[in-house]
Design a protein around this nucleic acid. Sequence first.
DNA 1: CGGAGCTGGTTGACGCTGTCTACAATGGGT
DNA 2: ACCCATTGTAGACAGCGTCAACCAGCTCCG
Lengths: 204, 204
Amino acid sequence: MSERKRERPKDLRQACLAEAYGIVAESGPEKLSLREVARRLGVSHQAPYKHFPSRDHILAEIIARSFRDFAAFLNRRSATPSGEADLCAMGRAYIDYAREKPLNYRLMFNTALPPAAEHPEMMADARHAFSILHERLRRAHAPLDTAGARRVKFDALYIWSTLHGLASILESDVLPSIDFSEDELREAAEQVLDRLGGPPTPEP
Amino acid sequence: MSERKRERPKDLRQACLAEAYGIVAESGPEKLSLREVARRLGVSHQAPYKHFPSRDHILAEIIARSFRDFAAFLNRRSATPSGEADLCAMGRAYIDYAREKPLNYRLMFNTALPPAAEHPEMMADARHAFSILHERLRRAHAPLDTAGARRVKFDALYIWSTLHGLASILESDVLPSIDFSEDELREAAEQVLDRLGGPPTPEP
DNA sequence: CGGAGCTGGTTGACGCTGTCTACAATGGGT
DNA sequence: ACCCATTGTAGACAGCGTCAACCAGCTCCG
């Protein structure tokens, strides 16, 4: 019935990004096509090329935005007043982000990124997000250990590994097909975070 | 000079898989194309379709093979005679596999799998690999804890998370761009495995 | 003014892809 | 000797990314 074409949007660039994000959300990053974006916006198949040099560039920008969103989220959540339970807050924030925005998380960490060399801006955003994570982990962990930055660094890697692995496993929906029940699934993150937070802080 | 066409292989199916694996190794799974496979084998562009119903099916079979290879590797490595240091052996085996066959690891865990519903055989192989991992973790961990299967299960999830996260991080080449030096990078797996093996066995 | 040139849009073409269909050769079972 | 499944070929189609040419308006500068 009704023509689905929207009016020509004022800012085609932003509109492209929004529509592209929608397509990725519906069908995954492989299915993103500039022609489909154009079609949905009711513009010619070449219009998006005036704003993005290639298909990968639009995807790279979406991913870059995810990194920025992730970084902002981590900043917001881990800015505890005390600064003491930072580690716990950070862990929870990391997992929460993966649960609240699974698409973004998948785009950043579970998808082959567009070739890094050709998308320096995206990589800069990625590094920035990592640096926040790393810095917070380092700061939260340092008071517990005076044996040198080297050991702290590996501690941070250990924590990050667990967080990232947990988030990926939760996101991949594999747990139900292993023995995990509904209940256990809901509790999984909490349990893992407990184990991660427990042993490393033996309260001397 | 020489025609690059090979003789028509006897078993075109196997030849297709081999060539497809080569393409994926060179250029990543996105670049896999049945036409390119056919071209390299010197057959018509439709010949591979007599052996695989679709492009995704050939990729799914490659991934399924990776899962089988991974399962066999875990079995081989974690079959310690004592059965006691199983956990450590398992951890090392997991990380070693990711390091020795990074392509396979990426295909299994860092790539959007072809839609699960349409490739039940691949998913069966995936579940089998997971079950080995899970079973080994459960068995290795059980003696240390008699508080019930529930807790053991979460312990297994915790260990698996750390292993998977570490492997993914190592594989993603992101560490060099965070502060990690050559040396530290080489030592990273060892350090994380130490931390994973340490705390959970407090020798009462 | 008026034209030059940039910006953002158009259409058309090319070669690549997956996949459908029709067709040919081959060879074993009855 | 015939049937027919198997395995290969050839051709067509639509969708994709991308290149090139073109065109409308706008701004800037003479």
